[in-house]
Design a protein around this nucleic acid. Structure first.
Lengths: 350, 350
DNA sequence: CTGAAAGCGCTTACAG
DNA sequence: CTGAAAGCGCTTACAG
């Protein structure tokens, strides 16, 4: 038995079971242990040896040191997921779906909140260059961060990107907007207001553009005064909605997000405007809030699970290629869920 | 100039700037670079050399390889945060606060959802033993996972633990329950129902026990039939609430979570029960939903930011110690926020 | 104040 | 089919 000289001052005794320990106990070489446990034994290690090693590793409770693996292979099995706001249940859903798919491939996921961390892009670049993560999914990037990300662009997959051509995964926003406008027009609404999210995201800009072109297609008018915007901070959004809805000349209102729809409900309540009799409201996202509102909210559902899964799959594929393939984005279909907040415009407003 | 022999088949060219590259350019040894950049230069490296190295590193865009650092030091600068449900905005808040504090110490955070991953405890142990993470904050563990975690217990900090003595951070639940019961009793309520969360968490059990002892203290009765439970799945919870509220003999209802309160609102709406005239409702958490409900929900606010921050601070401290200090937990104060969902019991129910 | 060297725990050609 | 050896990029005693 070889005595192990614990050199003073060296990293403290680790206690962990290493592949060398497994090799010693199994009386094989450490190479063999590595080959077997990383699944590369086929045709290179006899079945007997393979079984012995696996057995020994299990018995000793061996877990490969991921830092050593990452150092040697050059890539950590960790991904980052950057989302605008972790506190929104929708992004929680995205995370859960992404994490599940990542886990299938033995990857861990680090979550980045781009709203609370203004330097998120710089930090992400640092994470990639320091090899903390191998790649990142960026949900709804803002234009400001793009220059920062160019140096690591091959390791990034965008969802609902600023520039739609850059998206690895995208949403069929125009299809959804068509459904929204057709639904409202079908009920008899001629004037539709727009309550926009006050964030510099192309995702929101695109929704509005689709909205306008659908109105156009249907021959419906739109005025600048029929549109306002607010952040998702509930009190501020409610105040904004209240000014906006006072004497509003429209009979239906589209909201960029269910949270904004919630603020519109509160404003309507305070103003004594009945939903849907006096005002129809449509949201976007279909988070839990939609069904907690009274009446329940008609809204556009986004398949968070499909998006989260697909984004991870595509990112992992992309990381294997030498160069980023410029293939077309995966486009997720959205679904209008009609509930009680939309009805024909029975009572004309001012 | 030393020619570097790129040995065929070795890990592909990495492209990354290493400390050796910095050393070569700055014409110092790699040890010196390391000393300077890890902030251990004081009294060991001349100011001139220090400046030169820093300058060179910045110019080359050097980022230390964290895998190499972790391998050498034995600990990755990564923490895990295990929460019951990422999709609940409350845990999003916890994450944001924890991540911010972790970032201050140069740690990254991996999020674990214990509801969607039934083997989370096993996976967490794997993460710790494989050195992917140095430690973990576990929010509201369930008893089932405890045996699995014992082997890594020194690397874990509990929040609202199964066994309150094990908590590194805890909530003053009895204080909150006292405020709730006193508030309702003060309004004149004698019979208070309880809508419990149907999860095997000690956190919820403790809320109910505190509730009972506060009732006791106030001399108020409680019957088993005045209590029911449901998961947070909105439709199921609403159905449960509907059965429960039909001919309910109580005039006020405490809910383990704002989401359950939301379900109770829906049920009340369907049954034609007016809130708060016929039924007062109190929630727990004070997430956004509380202010979106109509009337706005009286609920107990939990300081997610304080909890997230403190948990990280304490975990980091704990990881430095050789043995886990059994000091007392940090106890976060909760606050009852009175809104429109509670009022005197004007109309007696059956 | 500075540098040469060991070694953290792996993976992977290479030789046998 | 198996093993010896190199080397990923760091940190840290140690020698000078």
């Amino acid at each position: 038995m070889r005595a192990k000289l614990q050199k003073a001052g060296d990293p403290k005794a680790r206690g962990a079971v290493t592949s060398i320990a497994v090799a010693e106990v199994a009386r094989v070489s450490q190479s063999t242990v590595s080959l077997v446990l990383s699944g590369k034994a086929a045709g290179r290690v006899s079945t007997a040896t393979k079984t012995l090693v696996e057995e020994t590793a299990r018995r000793l409770g061996y877990q490969p040191n991921v830092s050593a693996q990452a150092l040697r292979t050059g890539a950590a099995k960790t991904l980052a997921l950057a989302v605008p706001n972790v506190q929104q249940p929708f992004f929680g859903q995205i995370f859960v779906a992404a994490e599940l798919k990542a886990r299938e491939h033995d990857y861990a996921v680090i979550l980045i909140d781009t709203t609370t961390d203004l330097l998120w892009a710089e930090r992400l670049v640092g994470m990639i260059r320091s090899r903390l993560v191998s790649g990142c999914i960026v949900y709804a990037n803002d234009a400001r961060s793009d220059p920062t990300l160019t140096s690591v662009i091959g390791s990034v997959l965008f969802v609902e990107a600023e520039d739609p051509n850059k998206s690895g995964v995208d949403l069929n926003v125009s299809g959804a907007m068509r459904a929204v406008v057709e639904h409202l027009a079908g009920l008899g609404h001629q004037r539709i207001g727009y309550f926009a999210a006050e964030y510099p995201k192309a995702a929101y800009k695109r929704r509005f553009e689709s909205f306008l072109s659908e109105l156009n297609r249907m021959g419906l008018p739109h005025r600048a005064q029929w549109r306002t915007s607010a952040t998702f901070e509930l009190e501020a959004a409610t105040r904004r909605a209240k000014e906006f809805l006072k004497n509003a000349p429209f009979t239906a209102l589209f909201c960029d997000d269910d949270l904004l729809a919630g603020a519109a409900y509160r404003a309507a309540r305070q103003l004594g405007i009945a939903i849907p009799a006096q005002l129809s409201i449509v949201g976007f996202n279909d988070i839990e809030i939609a069904r907690l509102l009274d009446p329940e909210l008609t809204t556009v559902a986004i398949p968070a699970d499909v998006i989260g899964r697909t984004a991870v799959e595509r990112l992992l594929l992309q990381l294997q290629r030498p160069v980023k393939p410029a293939g077309p984005a995966f486009v997720a279909e959205l679904e209008l869920r009609v509930r009680g907040s939309t009805a024909p415009p029975e009572l004309q407003q001012v």
